[in-house]
Nucleic acid binder design. Structure first.
Lengths: 210, 210
DNA sequence: CACGCTAATGGCACCCAGTGCCAGAAGGAA
DNA sequence: TTCCTTCTGGCACTGGGTGCCATTAGCGTG
């Protein structure tokens, strides 16, 4: 059995929660993520073994893999829930808004974060986009992001989401967002929202103006 | 194993004779790729171990890793040389050609193949884009492709290739090409060049027309 | 022919990620 | 206490990938 990680940890949020039977989880995904990120920053991603992380968390190596399917998944945090937010955001965009305009807005919104978290997010994204192993793995996560965009585009165009145009839009939007992220990481003083806005406008004008 | 031919290492590039000193390589990258692709088709990528491949080729496991840095690299064949071709192709495009038009043409050209190879290429690409491990790994190869496009775009725009616009163009072009590839794989009777042409035209018009 | 130079091979030990199995540990409720 | 449940974590095993090093195989020269 894949033994799929993450059950009722119920990390951050309160949720006093109905007292369930059985032994309590020894830790949470959040805790492991934080801990691991510190180790990565200190020793580097590749040099940090799962044993290191488990030891630091005071759990067994085997247990670690019940919280995360792989070491690569550690930096992704609550990505899947964020995707749901984006789906909802798309749903709230007025029908009158042009398709690519909606994509632009939703993408910017998806990547908005409180100023206090900028520093943290930057570190996380630097890991994800600059450590080759993680960059490779990220492709699989990004596929889920593309899926959300393709769903919306397909809906708007009255086409199946698997058709060329919705898929092309989703792929292009992802590519554009990643190029903006790379600029953001390269330039300490840059603003992510602005970079996303600029690059998505380029996309929407077919890179014609200069 | 019939390790006949495959005399000269460095198959492909010139230097027909050039009697070098030292022991002859036991096989070639090409031979290993072919062999492996057959095994993948028969047993699946994940179920085929490096030991299987090495055994089938009649070489030691250790030797395999001197021909390919990883099992994931097997299906990529001569990709790097093909990239050089694309670089040259870009260089030959007349200066009068609009930038995005040049990108469209070069992308289509890069992905052109003799009809006899279509079947083979389809199988290879299905592996690369549908086996999760390989899809993830492919990101790293695609980075090199983007680099070629970004170089050209940067050159044309008079900007460093690392700037937002060249990078955005490269990312978008890659995304578009991949969406075309997915359609091609999904529809047995489709034509890759045509799909690339259609999706790149969409890109160049900012996905505006319908 | 024997020697030395060079370039490749391949066995061995080892590291690390990830998995199946299973015997417990820890909690609530009867 | 006993039962039931959930989570833990040790153990053994697979498979990719690497460092080390002795060995093999070609070539040229004395």
């Amino acid at each position: 059995m894949p033994d799929d990680g993450a059950r009722n940890g119920t990390a951050g949020t309160a949720a006093p929660g109905a007292p369930r039977p059985g032994r309590r989880p020894a830790t949470t995904r959040d805790e492991l993520t934080h801990l691991a990120l510190e180790l990565f920053a200190a020793k580097g991603f590749d040099a940090t073994t799962v044993d290191d992380i488990a030891a630091a968390a005071g759990i067994g190596r085997r247990t670690f893999f019940r919280y995360f399917a792989s070491k690569n998944d550690l930096p992704w945090g609550d990505f899947d829930e964020r995707l749901e937010d984006m789906r909802k955001h798309f749903a709230r965009i007025p029908d009158g808004t042009p398709l690519m305009e909606a994509v632009r807005i939703a993408t910017i919104e998806f990547n908005r974060m409180p100023p206090a978290e900028v520093r943290y997010h930057r570190e996380r994204m630097a890991l994800l986009l600059r450590v080759p192993t993680l960059l490779a793995h990220s492709t699989l996560r990004f596929a889920a992001w593309r899926q959300v965009v393709a769903e919306f585009a397909g809906h708007r165009l009255g086409l199946p989401e698997g058709d060329l145009q919705p898929q092309a839009i989703a792929w292009a939007a992802l590519g554009i967002a990643l190029s903006a992220y790379e600029q953001w990481l390269d330039h300490e003083d840059s603003d992510l929202s602005e970079l996303l806005d600029r690059s998505l406008c380029m996309l929407n004008s077919g890179f014609s103006s200069r």
